[in-house]
Design a protein around this nucleic acid. Structure first.
Lengths: 138, 138
DNA sequence: TTTCCTAGTTTACGGTTGTAAACTGTCTTT
DNA sequence: AAAGACAGTTTACAACCGTAAACTAGGAAA
């Protein structure tokens, strides 16, 4: 179970290409990344190499050019990443932070429906207040 | 308007103390941080110095020990930080990511109510589907 | 006023990250 | 078989980060 903490921002950007393509060559990555970044080809190559070292990408070396594929699922990576940020937030502020997020994200009808029903359910057992935990245990 | 992108994880951890206290001495920070980390006093001092250089903390030097206070509001910092992570996510996956977050966070009754009403409102104009934007513009 | 403690400042050091050039090995095309 | 193109590998390098020791100056105690 690979741990996404060690994936840098630039590496994440590269992974998105492979996650979306399912698999692809370095050329594919270089090509698509030109649309979003100003990186030189060499930069992308470096990032791919680092992702391999960290076991986030694996190369099929049976033929050239190699074909790379993700060794961690996008959903799993997103889960870890998003949760990591939230774990560093004051407990008391999480609700508002989520509100903020919802306000500024495009969300589909289906997902909104899911969110509402999840919240309805969560409401049954929700506490009246959530304490700030920033100063640690008393 | 300071930009939270340059605040490191360790620095963030220190800021939480000052955000919660409103202001405090390095001793305060060292003390509270002992509850959550194994950092040596010197480490906290270094982090405070870096936060000052980056203009996230300001010291009142009119008397010793200095009293430090945050130059960026916690809410603003959280907003920037959380949004930064979400901006690096595939648009299509944001809804699920938020679901995930809600599922694993403690949220108060009040916040849940707010979230639901925000979602109800958002539902009026929500798209049926959200496209993946990982490969950039076509 | 001499000494000591405490807190602020300087220096340190290896690892990671962003960014990329240069080198090299392997197919493909003459 | 020789040459060229492309992609994979090595090397580079400054800034930032986590982590902390060592040094120093200002205020408190003796």
């Amino acid at each position: 179970m690979s741990n996404v903490e060690t994936m840098s921002d630039a590496e994440w950007t590269v992974m998105r290409i492979f996650w979306t393509l399912g698999s692809g060559t370095s050329k594919d990555a270089i090509l698509y990344l030109k649309r979003k970044t100003a990186w030189k080809d060499a930069t992308v190559k470096t990032l791919i190499t680092r992702l391999q070292k960290k076991d986030f990408l694996q190369a099929d070396e049976s033929s050239r050019p190699y074909v790379y594929k993700p060794m961690i699922a996008e959903n799993e990576a997103i889960h870890q990443n998003v949760n990591r940020v939230f774990n560093s937030l004051c407990d008391m502020k999480k609700g508002k932070a989520i509100e903020d997020l919802i306000a500024s994200s495009e969300i589909s009808q289906g997902d909104i429906a899911d969110l509402i029903s999840l919240l309805e359910k969560k409401k049954q057992n929700a506490p009246d207040h959530v304490q700030c935990d920033c100063l640690g245990e008393a």
